[in-house]
Amino acid sequence: MSKNKLRIGVYGLTGCAGDQLTILNCEDRLLKLFETVDVRSFLMAKSDNLEEELDIALVEGSVSTRSDEESVINIRQRTGSLVAIGICACFGGIQAVFTEPEEWAKQYEQVYGNRSVSSNAALQSRPVKAFVKVDYYLPGCPIHKEQFLALLSRLALGSTPEFHRAPVCLECKWQENDCLLNKNVLCLGPLTTAGCGAICPTCNLPCVGCWGPFEEANCWSEWNLLLDKDYDRNIIMQKMKSFSGTGFIQFFNTMKKERT
């Protein structure tokens, strides 16, 4: 174990562990990678984990319990950089669908009633950035192998990870697909970060937004376009909320204000 090697930790909060699995799925390339860096902690891959100082922490999952919160604060305190991997860590994921506090309280009561939960209390699910500083984001559901390797390589070489900020539509056109919105299909391509290679539209299925909200997404125009195509506002909202976590919260708040 060389002192110069980058010390890395891979952690999972609340999520499906699919992003950690994707890292393991790099298979033969992983061996080379793990020779280059020093993997201090990676519970899914090994048992002798050292919870010490790190250069890079890769964190999957959203913060959904008290212990998630404690872990992520602890990880942040002992790492140089923190990378949120997967949409749960980046935006909260599906479990953050109840963005309104009253909705969350209702849901909590339905599940737990009045019982007091002692060991690991559930919180309203939030992305990692709601608790600690996040240096880099690697979205995806799950993350993409190549993008993960490219990110880690850049960090290992001391440079900044680079992402092309574009919506799924760009990659969809590269794949030579007809626009599904033009065929009146409820497609979230324009609102969703590129990176998946437009897999779903290429199979003639609409984008559901699993790569997470695109930074410059024009929710207002997409929303009205779908209303214009006779979609019900509740359906549109459901679709937009499924994977966006807290990403479109500002837009939904505006819409809510407008209704009241």
């Binding site: 490219a150 850049r154 900020r165 760009l170 590269w174």
Partner: peptide
């Protein structure tokens, strides 16, 4: 750069001036 393969590549792809970036 791919440290796992000790190689690097420069990729070129179509972009659009209508994108903010």
């Amino acid at each position: 750069h791919l440290i796992s393969e000790e190689t690097g590549e420069r990729r070129r792809y179509w972009d659009s001036c209508t994108l903010c970036e």
